[in-house]
């Protein structure tokens, strides 16, 4: 996959995640029913439509602008209005394009809403861990001495933590894992890599002439670090962070697969894979493995391709 194609795939997933509500929701984009007009009820959630669904509203509305798929990510077979009498999961058909999960929830709806969760977590983790890593790495590299010694040991200790076990313990202690909590916990395990890269770069750069020149011109230490060193040392961190997006996606999926990700019924790709695992007995439910599997693979491969592209662009050897 080329870097451009990778960027396009990421852009597509971002667009799908941002527009998830417009693509799949239990309530329509706009509707006129019972003499009242509701604009964007899928976001405003008016009390009068609390127990409504799009198929139900469509039957009695004067007019309605529905979403592409008329099901929300949490709608089970109890509210999708299915007339099927067999038990879910349902294979892909005209009603559920990508099939349904084992309680009748639409896989497409869960996939696009899950993309939002996955991307939020992945980007949040990478941004937070990069911020933490860059700050601590830059400080360690610039200050040297005891500060470097302490931060370097902390970095080594953090690197040796068995990630999954650490996450399991922390998430279990959190009781009900929220999106923010999962981001924070994952970020705590990812900061050593950017910190290590930033420290090495700062150590390399701080002896160069431009730093000496800045110092000769009377620039303060903070100014030299923030305005001159960090921007020049960012390239390897940016490349590494791009790769880290992919691994954060995998880590989040693994956590959700283990049932330790964002609390149910929030949609996530890992949770769909967990359902696929539950449905592995022949004849199985291939759609529960294929579509989230493709989603995860496409996003991870795309971030890898973009990372490689940036690596070449910045001429950075990882």
């Amino acid at each position: 996959m080329s870097a451009r194609l990778g960027a396009a795939v990421i852009a597509l997933w971002v667009a799908l995640a941002l527009g998830a509500d417009l693509l799949a929701s239990d309530l329509p984009i706009a509707v006129r029913v019972d003499g009242r007009t509701y604009l964007a009820p899928l976001w405003t959630r008016p009390a009068a439509l609390q127990a409504e669904t799009q198929p139900g509203l469509r039957r009695r509305a004067e007019w309605m602008i529905g979403t592409l798929v008329e099901f929300g990510p949490r709608q089970t077979l109890a509210t999708t209005g299915t007339t099927r009498t067999d038990a879910p999961p349902f294979a892909p058909d005209a009603r559920h394009w990508l099939g349904s999960d084992d309680i009748g929830r639409d896989v497409f709806a869960r996939l696009v809403h899950g993309a939002r969760v996955t991307l939020l977590i992945a980007l949040g983790v990478v941004l937070l861990s990069s911020l933490l890593g860059v700050t601590l790495g830059a400080l360690a590299g610039w200050k040297g001495g005891v500060v470097d010694l302490l931060l370097s040991r902390a970095l080594e200790i953090a690197s040796t933590f068995p990630t999954i076990f650490f996450l399991i313990v922390v998430v279990a202690a959190l009781r009900t894992p929220s999106l923010t909590a999962v981001v924070l916990v994952l970020a705590l395990t990812r900061w050593p890599e950017p910190a290590r890269l930033m420290r090495a770069e700062v150590l390399r750069l701080k002896g160069l002439d431009f730093v000496l020149a800045a110092r000769a011109l009377g620039a303060s230490e903070a100014r030299i670090l923030v305005r001159h060193l960090v921007p020049n040392a960012l390239a390897p961190v940016i490349v590494s962070s791009t790769f880290a997006v992919g691994s954060a996606v995998l880590l989040e999926s693994a956590l959700s697969f283990l049932g330790l990700g964002v609390a149910p019924p929030t949609a996530s790709w890992g949770e769909l894979l967990q359902q696929a695992h539950r449905s592995l007995v022949t004849p199985g439910a291939w759609w529960l493995a294929l579509f989230p599997g493709l989603a995860i693979a496409s996003l991870v491969l795309a971030t890898q391709a973009v990372g490689k592209g940036l690596e070449r662009r910045f001429d950075v050897r990882r």
């Binding site: 609390q50 709608q75 109890a78 509210t79 929830r105 009900t176 609390a263 149910p264 019924p265």
Partner: peptide, 18 residues
Amino acid sequence: PLFQEQLARVGVSLTVEP
């Protein structure tokens, strides 16, 4: 999740603790 969905429709909030 099946129970949670119905509870939400009658105005009861169930939060899952895994």
